[in-house]
Structures are given as C-alpha cells and as structure tokens.
Amino acid sequence: MRDRAEVEEVVRQALRAVRTEEVDVGAGDALGLDSTQAMELIMQIEERLDISIPVDTLADSRTFDQLCSGIMRLD
C-alpha cells in the first residue's frame, strides 16, 4: 500500500516542475494543464513512483485530489 502523503508530495513536485505559471493548486481545484503539460506531468509522476498510469485513471483525474486517489487505487 502506497502512502497517500507521499503520493501527494510527488504529484505536487511534478506539478511545480511542469507548470509555467505560479499557481497553488488546491486539493479540489482542476489541474489546469494542456495536453503537452499533462503528458509531462504523468511522465514525472511515473518516473518518481515507478508506476504506469492507465488512460482510465487520467480520464477521471480532473482535480489534484482525483489524480492522487486514482494513483492510490493502482497496484
């Protein structure tokens, strides 16, 4: 079982690396990335956590919270 706090920290770091604008994304806020940025975000998360995030998880991840929960549900 992955640690939720760790997942959140990894996603937050990845977001900081990808976003061009300085905006604090709250848990329920939309991630607000275009498709190129989104792919870079996913790549960063996959490499940091050594996982593979399927299409289904992406399709359901509008917000920071949803993305973290989606990652938690992966094996």
Binding site: L31, S35, A38, L58, A59, S61, R62, Q66, L67
Partner: peptide, 11 residues
C-alpha cells in the same frame, strides 16, 4: 484516441 486529464465525459 486522445483523452485529456479529467476528460472522460468529454471524450
């Protein structure tokens, strides 16, 4: 076959 973040319904 392109889905955007959180884009399930749109797709």
């Amino acid at each position: 076959a392109a889905i955007h973040l959180g884009g399930r319904n749109a797709y």
